[in-house]
Design a protein around this nucleic acid. Structure first.
Length: 554
RNA sequence: GCGCCAGUAGCUCAGCUGGAUAGAGCAACGGACUUCUAAUCCGUAGGCCGGGGGUUCGAAUCCCUCCUGGCGCGCCA
């Protein structure tokens, strides 16, 4: 990648300066910072290296920059090396470099943009993990898309990625579901029931009970506890099928579905808690077993086993997470709803107490989604069952728009999701803006083919016909795609790719409006076709990582 | 009361580990379709980056404090 090339050139220049005595401190910054200047007049890349060295060298930044620049100007990588502002060194890449970028894209095709920064690191992304007590709603959708896109981006950056869904199929919530189903079943049988307030009121519970009707005879023979257990199992299985179906409609698949109940079935909770005990991290008090999380940054200690002998939810979660590391993951990423943020300190404390590095667990908090229709908030009540399911939203606005909207914002800021806006086929809708750029290029290709113009090959491509500022700007943006993926991966920020895409699409539309690709001059046409098809490849690659389609025609 | 997240143009939001003149879309206003799809483009206007202090060559970004909004603070899951 170009940034690394520049870095090594800089490092070499610095070494030269030290050897020649032009600079004396002998200091090498841990990482040489390279940035893309906001103002294009400041070149393609810039470094603040001279400013960083100012203190140890005891010289003015601009003088240090001058010394470094002298050594850098000889390098063939650059057309220009300039000193500017308080001591920035600005680089303008040599023209020949841009031709190489295009060749590189053609050589790599759908692989272009991938890197190896994450090579050898095994990472798990756990996301959605919604309780199997009801259909997915809109909030789950955001977490689902963010987790899915992040996993794809991490994989593109070379990480070894696994997508996992944790099924909370043990404990009170699913018991309550089972009880609710049983009650509805009895109601269907004509019995008078007293439905509890903390039961699941929504209509789908009755739907599930309907599904059990054929077995009602059998169920009647069971005692209450066994009947509830049967209802629970049926309900959970059925709801998980719904969830899986909805996720598939959203283009999301998991490598692994991990059952909480299986932790108990395999005595994993007992075993993992035993390991915590051995490390002296637990103590007994008031007939309960506690974990000393306060010693590692939590504000209070946490109960693992209640005084009645049952495990807390935290206990199984501890076991679950410890087992993730047993499974060999170097890094574990959890995608949670922001309302669970209070849970992070105890989880991190537990891992820290266990001797795992703080960075081993990364929790991505997904902020709330405010559903709007024509600018008016859509109020949803959870218990009442008055909510919009994810499926309904996907069916209404479409998978592409839905995914794109969820990815448009940084995930730790709240998101306004306007159903009408997401549906509009207009300039208000950023999804189409990007997709249209792709479709336009495909359209140009069809027109080129219609007049017998062939797609240029590497051998036919003549870079000297690409002389316009807009053309160089496009290639510059293309060259930054690998950096965009790497940044999105290392910072766990899929939205960066959305912004990258919008910038690239904007450059393409602007170019399209100002200049014709299919020109009178065959040579010019050929070179431009080569360029726009490189753009097409990158648009498709980026959209692919986000799980949004790249249509050939709109 | 304590903690987490947020506060940037009228609205919705970017701003990468502190960098050069704070950006984009929408809305507003003015333009561009006999020309590869106008789902597009070009231009104008719009800002004490919530307030106040500090750190330094340099702060929207880091620290302190206050204000506002959202969400959490169970031997619930």
């Amino acid at each position: 990648m170009i940034k690394n090339d520049i870095r090594s050139v800089l490092k070499q220049a610095l070494e030269n300066c030290y050897q020649q005595g032009a600079l004396t401190s002998g200091e090498f910054p841990a990482e040489i910072q390279l940035e893309v200047p906001k103002n294009p007049e400041h070149g393609d890349y810039a470094t603040n290296l001279a400013m960083m060295l100012a203190r140890s060298e005891g010289k003015a930044p601009r003088r240090i920059a001058e010394v470094l620049a002298e050594s850098l100007r000889a390098d063939a990588l650059f057309d220009a090396v300039e000193i500017a502002g308080p001591g920035f060194i600005n680089f303008r890449l040599a023209v020949g470099y841009w031709a190489k970028v295009l060749h590189h894209i053609y050589a790599e095709q759908e692989q272009f943009g991938r890197s190896q920064v994450g090579a050898g690191v095994k990472v798990q992304v756990e996301f959605v993990s919604a309780n199997p007590t009801g259909p997915l709603h809109i909030g789950h959708g955001r977490g689902a898309v963010v987790g899915d896109a992040l996993a794809a981006i991490l994989a593109a950056a070379g990480f070894d990625v696994q997508r996992e869904y944790y099924i909370n199929d043990a404990g009170n919530q699913v018991q309550t579901l089972g009880r609710s189903i049983l009650l509805r079943l009895r109601e269907l049988q004509g019995k008078v029931i007293d439905f509890p307030e903390d039961g699941y009121q929504a209509a789908y519970v009755t739907e599930l009970a309907e599904g059990l009707r054929q077995e009602q005879g059998e169920l009647a023979d069971l005692n209450e506890e066994e009947a509830i257990s049967r209802c629970t199992r049926f309900g959970v299985d059925q709801i998980l099928k719904w969830i899986d179906t909805d996720l598939k409609a959203f283009g999301i698949h998991f490598d692994n579905w991990y059952s909480e109940q299986s932790l108990y079935d395999r005595d994993m909770v007992e075993q993992e808690l035993g390991r915590l005990k051995e490390k002296g991290l637990t103590y007994e008090e008031d007939d309960a077993l506690w974990l000393r999380t306060t010693e590692f940054g939590d504000d209070k200690n946490r109960v693992l086993i209640k005084s009645d002998g049952s495990y807390t939810y935290f206990a199984s979660d501890v076991a679950y997470h410890l087992e993730k590391f047993d499974r060999g993951f170097d890094r574990v990423i959890d995608v949670w709803g922001a309302d669970h943020h209070g849970y992070i300190p105890r989880m991190k404390a537990m891992l820290k107490g266990f001797g795992l590095p703080a960075a081993a667990l990364e929790v991505l908090l997904i902020q709330m989604v405010n559903l709007l229709r024509d600018g008016q908030p859509f109020v949803m009540g959870k218990r009442s069952g008055n909510f919009i399911t994810l499926r309904e939203v996907i069916d209404e606005v479409g998978r592409d728009a839905c995914r794109f909207f969820f990815l448009m914002r940084r995930c730790d800021s709240q998101l306004d999701f306007d159903l009408e806006l997401a549906k509009q086929n207009s300039s208000d809708n950023p999804v189409y803006y990007v997709q249209y750029a792709h479709a336009r290029i495909c359209s140009i290709n069809r027109n080129a083919a219609a007049v017998g113009m062939e797609q240029p090959t590497l051998a036919q491509f003549d870079f000297s016909y690409l002389t316009l500022a807009e053309e160089i700007a496009l290639i510059r943006q293309l060259s930054r795609f690998p950096e965009a993926i790497e940044g999105a991966a290392l910072h766990y920020e899929p939205h960066r790719l959305v912004f990258y895409l919008q910038d690239l699409a904007a450059l393409l539309h602007s170019y399209y409006n100002r200049h014709r690709v299919l020109d009178e001059d065959a040579q010019v046409t050929s070179a431009r076709l080569y360029l726009v098809n490189a753009v097409r490849i990158v648009l498709a690659n980026a959209l692919g990582l986000l799980g949004v389609s790249a249509p050939e025609q709109m």
